[in-house]
Design a protein around this nucleic acid. Structure first.
Length: 269
DNA sequence: CTTGGGACCTGGCTGC
DNA sequence: TGCAGCCAGGTCCCAA
C-alpha cells in the first residue's frame, strides 16, 4: 500500500530514468484510469512532452512537464510504476514509452489508481495538509491544529487534509512508538504526547524511506524489487503477535472501517 | 466547519 | 471442489 515512504522511494528511484526524457507514445488499457482530461486528449497532449522534474506531495507523484502542465499519478491501494519490467502482467493499465526506448508501466491489480494531466495542479493537491517531513512542520503547529479536532487521533492522522502522506500502516506505527492509543481524542493529547507523536511520525517515515518502503501487499519499486520497511513494523498487520516491548498480544480494532493495530498495554486509553 | 459511513475495486482467504 | 462472503484501505461523496 503506497503511502508517503513508498511514493517517495518511487520518485527517488524513477527520477534518474525519466528526468530529461520525452514521452513518445502512450497506451491506456483501462477506461477508468485517466480522470482528467479525456483519455484521448490525455495521450495526445502528453506525447512529445519532456519531463523537467518529479515531485511527491502526500501520496501523489507529480511529473512536471516541458509544457508547464503536470502529470499527476495516485497509486491508491495497489498501483505500481515499473520501469522496463521483465515479466508482462495482466494488471497493466497504461504504458508510457520514453525517447530512450524505456517503458514506464502502470500496473494496478485493483483498478483504483488514477492519472491526471492538468495545468493547475492545485486543483488536485490543493486540499492536502502539510508535509510531515517539511522543516515548517513543527510540534507546535501540530499541537495547535490538533486542538480543533476531537475525532480519534488515528482518524485525524489518516485525514490527508490534516497531514499529508500518512496511511494506515504508518499511523499505527507512529502511535505505537509514541505510546498513544488510537482511539484517544485528538484534542485530549498532552503537550508531551504531541511532542512524542511528532517525533514518532518523522522517525517512522524517515526509517521507512531509508528502507525503500514496505512491501506488505503489492508494493514494488520501479526495478521490481521489494522494500524492506515492513520488517521493522512492530504493530502494523501484526494482530495476535506479541508486542516487541512488553509481550502483550497485539490487538486489532476497526476505526473508520480501517484495521488499527496496537498494544493494549503500551498504548492505554 | 467536523464527523462518520458507504462506495469504489479486485484478489486472497475462510468456512460451509 | 466450488462458491458466497468477508477483508484489505486511499480517497471521494454525502448526510448529519
Amino acid at each position: 500500500m503506497p503511502e508517503l515512504p513508498e511514493v517517495e522511494t518511487i520518485k527517488n528511484e524513477l527520477s534518474p530514468h525519466v528526468i530529461g526524457r520525452q514521452f513518445t507514445q502512450i497506451a491506456i488499457y483501462d477506461i477508468k484510469l485517466v480522470r482528467q482530461p479525456s483519455s484521448g486528449k490525455f495521450c495526445q497532449k502528453l506525447v512529445r512532452q519532456r519531463v523537467n522534474s518529479l515531485e511527491r506531495r502526500g501520496k501523489y507523484l507529480m511529473f512536471h512537464l516541458s509544457s508547464s502542465e503536470t502529470l499527476i499519478i495516485h497509486l491508491k491501494m495497489a498501483g505500481a510504476l515499473l520501469l522496463n519490467p521483465k515479466q508482462p502482467d495482466c494488471h497493466t493499465r497504461a504504458i508510457f514509452q520514453l525517447d530512450n526506448g524505456s517503458q514506464l508501466v502502470f500496473s494496478d491489480r485493483r483498478r483504483l489508481g488514477a492519472l491526471w494531466l492538468v495545468k493547475n495542479e492545485q486543483v488536485i493537491i490543493g486540499k492536502l495538509g502539510p508535509e510531515p517531513l517539511a522543516t515548517e512542520s513543527t510540534a507546535e503547529t501540530l499541537a495547535k491544529r490538533l486542538q480543533k479536532r476531537q475525532a480519534p487521533i488515528k482518524a485525524v492522522l489518516l485525514d490527508q487534509g490534516f497531514i499529508a502522506g500518512i496511511g494506515n500502516m504508518y499511523a499505527d506505527e507512529a502511535l505505537f512508538t509514541a505510546k498513544i492509543h488510537p482511539l484517544r481524542k485528538a484534542n485530549s493529547l498532552s503537550a508531551q504526547e504531541i511532542k512524542n507523536l511528532y517525533k514518532s511520525i518523522r522517525h517512522v517515515l524517515r526509517t521507512a524511506i531509508s528502507n525503500k518502503g514496505a512491501s506488505v501487499d503489492t508494493y514494488k519499486r520501479p526495478n521490481g524489487q521489494l522494500g524492506t520497511a515492513h520488517f521493522n513494523f512492530r504493530v502494523a498487520h501484526r494482530g495476535g503477535r506479541p508486542c516487541p516491548i512488553c509481550g502483550t498480544s497485539i490487538q486489532r480494532l476497526a476505526i473508520r472501517n480501517r484495521g488499527s493495530y496496537f498494544c493494549p498495554n503500551c498504548q492505554r486509553v
